[in-house]
Design a protein around this nucleic acid. Structure first.
Lengths: 112, 112
DNA sequence: TTCAATAGTTCAATATTCTTGAACTATTGA
DNA sequence: TCAATAGTTCAAGAATATTGAACTATTGAA
């Protein structure tokens, strides 16, 4: 694709950005799948929701630029992975607490 | 004031709502002050930022309806307190992780 | 090679949400 | 009774989000 992906260095990743990115149920669901799978996933697979692809693309971009995921082009697809280790170092316990809380919430209705 | 305050029961408080509420730097700053003081604080004191009062009122309402704070009228003012214990029970470790991460971020520029 | 299919991205327009000035309300103290 | 205080509410303009349509890059097959 035309422009290369933007991945902020971990020191530029802000708490607000992270919270904002994960405050959206679709993005939280995507991030959960990426952390859950341990490895990489392409966009449409990681998104367990039937949103238009332009919307999905937007969500992935936001997750990426918030510092939550790393994306890389691979053939015709883009593979994504959660930046768990870096995040854990910058925001200790945060991702874990969010994922745990999210697990406990069936109310989301979108996750899984 | 006309309409009474709305405080959702803790079981109706959603993770997304909490994340969204705290994704705003002003609201995070307000919440931090409320947790930091341990007790109650009126709105203008809890808000360490010089926003118009209509905006502040909106932020307090959002924090309240997201389940993060409890507000009560006392004379001419409204006193607020963080719902820490309830939140801890529903979302273990979450508030603590956010506050810790927030402490570590001087980049916010608004907190304290 | 060419061509169609795949997997996203980008753009632009509409829809939704936020911010804030101005007017309003409730309480207090003089 | 009145002014001051501390917020709330409303409405309008500003800022963001969502999404259909057009576009791009890569692959695999003919």
């Amino acid at each position: 694709m035309a422009r290369p992906f933007v991945h902020p260095p971990i020191e530029d990743v802000s708490l607000e950005g992270v919270l904002y990115a994960l405050a959206d149920p679709h993005r939280l669901a995507i991030f959960r799948r990426l952390t859950g799978c341990g490895g990489t996933m392409n966009c449409s697979t990681a998104a367990p929701c039937d949103l238009p692809k332009s919307t999905l693309s937007h969500h992935f971009k936001l997750l990426r630029e918030a510092g939550l995921i790393r994306s890389e082009k691979q053939g015709t697809q883009v593979v994504n992975m959660a930046r768990c280790d870096e995040l854990e170092q910058k925001f200790p316990g945060l991702v874990h607490a969010i994922l745990t809380s999210s697990d406990a919430c069936e109310s989301d209705g979108i996750n899984r």
